[in-house]
Nucleic acid binder design. Structure first.
Lengths: 227, 227
DNA sequence: GCATGTGAATGGATTCACAGCT
DNA sequence: AGCTGTGAATCCATTCACATGC
């Protein structure tokens, strides 16, 4: 076990948690936030599952990663559980973000409330098009020259980079983000990036998503035809 | 192979293909399109894997779903494979799209080249804010009143809906899309939607993605601390 | 009695490794 | 020889089902 632990140490949840699990934890957090509005104090895994079309055993297993938070015969304390989720997900302090690419998508992301809410703060947009430097997004996020990246990251301690540039420049942007000291990247460019050690990379690919839908359309089409 | 070939029945690949697999098929298609630029005729699963950091066995397994397309000792014919992928993914004909929500995100998506490229066509944006009706996105996609949804879907045979409205209205928009006859939906709202029979639903949740990154940051932080 | 936490069972997806074709 | 297509092996995720504690 961990070097200096006593008790059942809430802090040292050092085991492996998969991507899929963290996604669900994030989801539970949102559900609890809804639930908090109604003035419930506790909720059972069963009720959570029913309300949000999930599986109660999976909820319990996921939540077990955070420690023994439930009370047998009762359920989970909503406020306490929320606190633990916030802490486990690491949004108990502000994480700063820069967005590379001040095109349509970059601008839309910069102004998207929900990215600029609790836990995250978008510090700047960066663009290699000099004519954009000095402008602002609608909500007031400044657009800087791409060359400013490493300065901004250093001075403001930015941890997360979002890539919203065309596919051709995505790899170069990714590399310069990593060099600047960013350690987690969310990529919207339709490109397969070469990852670098110790830097988390997640990609969201619109085209791939649409093509999956198309596949489904084609195939339900065909089953209808043959009936 | 000839353009109109029969032999091993390309059409009736009726087996189950998972979401994960279709995602990869879409990816292979993109890789092949790159590759086609250099004037290669064939490629082996091994080389594809090396170039794009994939696993060659998985590539072969995925491609086997499309029929026996490879040539032992040689590899796959790039152009032929591409044709098959296009067909399997169902983008061998145009699929029409509407976007609900003409805010920042909806507008950005409407103008995103790559969604408006081969295989897809965005027909309109819809918004319940009457003052937006009659305007256009930068690239010329018209904004219509939300009430027009079912007319547009019917008249233009729209198959795909994209949800880019706030979480509160996402379920209502989803339902009205389904009622209007749309059979595949890509949801960007941070809401857990109640699915309806026979309608494919994919969700892209920015917040969940960011929180996953945050989780990773928190945890690499801690491992560095304890060293 | 009720609901958690968890070992065991199941179900998928990925990877290995090789027989078989060119 | 080289590379595909695929059963077998492995790995990972989900679900079941129940002993355990409130």
């Amino acid at each position: 076990m961990s070097p200096a632990d006593k008790t059942a140490a809430p802090e040292e949840a050092r085991e492996q948690v998969s991507e899929l699990t963290t996604g669900r934890l994030s989801l539970y957090l949102r559900c609890l936030t809804h639930l908090e509005a109604s003035n419930r104090r506790t909720i059972s895994s069963q009720e959570l599952a029913d309300r949000y079309h999930l599986n109660s055993a999976q909820i319990r297993k996921d939540l077990a990663h955070l420690g023994e938070l439930g009370i047998r015969g009762v359920g989970y304390d909503i406020a306490a559980l929320k606190r633990h989720l916030v802490q486990t997900l690491g949004i108990d302090r502000l994480r700063k973000i820069v967005i590379a690419g001040a095109g349509n998508l970059g601008m839309a992301l910069a102004d998207y409330r929900g990215l600029n809410e609790s836990g995250f703060h978008i510090v700047a947009l960066l663009d290699s098009d000099r004519s954009k430097s000095g402008t602002c997004s609608r909500s007031g996020i400044p657009v800087l020259d791409a060359a400013e990246l490493s300065r901004v990251v250093r001075e403001q301690q930015v941890e997360i980079g979002i890539i919203a540039v065309p596919a051709e420049s995505a790899q170069a942007v990714y590399d310069s983000m990593v060099d600047a000291g960013i350690s987690a990247v969310l990529n919207f460019a339709p490109a397969r990036l070469r990852k670098r050690e110790g830097v988390k990379l997640k990609s969201v690919d619109l085209r791939v998503n649409l093509e999956s839908l198309s596949f489904h359309l084609k195939h339900s089409e065909e089953s209808r035809t043959s009936s």
